[in-house]
Design a binder for these strands. Structure first.
Length: 257
DNA sequence: ATGCCGCATCGAATGCGA
């Protein structure tokens, strides 16, 4: 099975591109971030037409996540990240699909740093780690995938210097991500590309795509049950170059049955 | 130091992203 993640930056603006990607690459599960729509506006019919069933967690204007599955309906296991009743951002959705549990993550950006948004990011990462530990204990094959908004190491960015002040690569952000890896989660793309140089995001501005000024912030974290079954992982880079593209590319991992 | 581009929103200027 293929588990994919795609920060689409607006599901309405991106719908033709999204349908195209689903039909061309046919992931078993697709986790979407930044759908930027309320629940009522989610275009479920368009996905049903091509054989995908979906669950979604929307919000007005920004954020919002969804999980699509090929031929089956995802069985929802969690809506919203536990640990803070005051947090109403739609950034986490979790479901079981064909024996695999998948968490769809849209981690806070955290800019500007320092400031309250950065503090929110760090608190969110602590909550994510705590929730991940409860999942871990179930010993269910689990993937936590999505836009982590963390550049894990200097090898994951075109210019560490240019990005040095950004919340995405502050030591606190990196440490929080590293702690999850330390808990035993496997970063699929990094494991298969240990020398780095793989990007999943290119800014719309300043010709970043044309200059290949990108970085890696979309991650696929696998529990040991899944990491043992990993066959391949990659980035669908060409989609970044198409008309009306997202600023992110899809990422995916293939798991043996 | 800031904007660059793009999406969203009761309609234009602003919030947000990374």
């Amino acid at each position: 099975m293929r588990i994919a993640s795609f920060n689409i930056n607006g599901i309405k603006a991106r719908l033709p591109r999204l349908i195209e990607w689903l039909e061309e690459t046919r992931p078993t599960v697709a986790c979407l971030q930044e759908i930027k729509t309320q629940d009522e506006g989610f275009p479920a019919d368009a996905f049903e037409k091509i054989g995908y069933h979906a669950i979604w967690h929307g919000q007005k204007s920004f954020n919002g996540v969804a999980i699509l599955a090929d031929g089956v309906t995802p069985v929802e296991t969690q809506r919203g990240l536990p640990g803070d009743d005051e947090d109403d951002h739609a950034r986490y959705l979790e479901a079981e699909v064909k024996g695999v549990r998948v968490g769809c993550i849209y981690l806070p950006n955290g800019n500007p740093h320092p400031g309250p948004k950065f503090e929110y990011k760090l608190r969110w990462m602590e909550r994510l780690r705590a929730h991940a530990e409860t999942l871990w204990r179930d010993e269910v094959p689990t993937a936590l995938v999505g836009d982590y908004n963390v550049i894990p190491e200097d090898k994951d960015v075109w210019s560490p210097r240019a990005m040095a002040a950004d919340a995405l690569m502050q030591p606190e952000s990196r440490d929080a991500y590293a702690r999850m890896l330390g808990d035993g989660w496997t970063d699929a793309i990094d494991t298969l590309n240990p020398r780095g140089g793989v990007w999943t995001f290119w800014d719309y501005q300043a010709g970043a795509w044309q200059r290949d000024h990108g970085f890696r912030i979309d991650h696929l974290l696998l529990s040991p049950e899944l990491a043992d079954r990993m066959e391949a992982a990659g980035v669908d880079k060409e989609y970044r170059g198409r008309e009306k593209s997202s600023d992110h590319t899809p990422v995916w991992v293939d798991i043996r049955d």
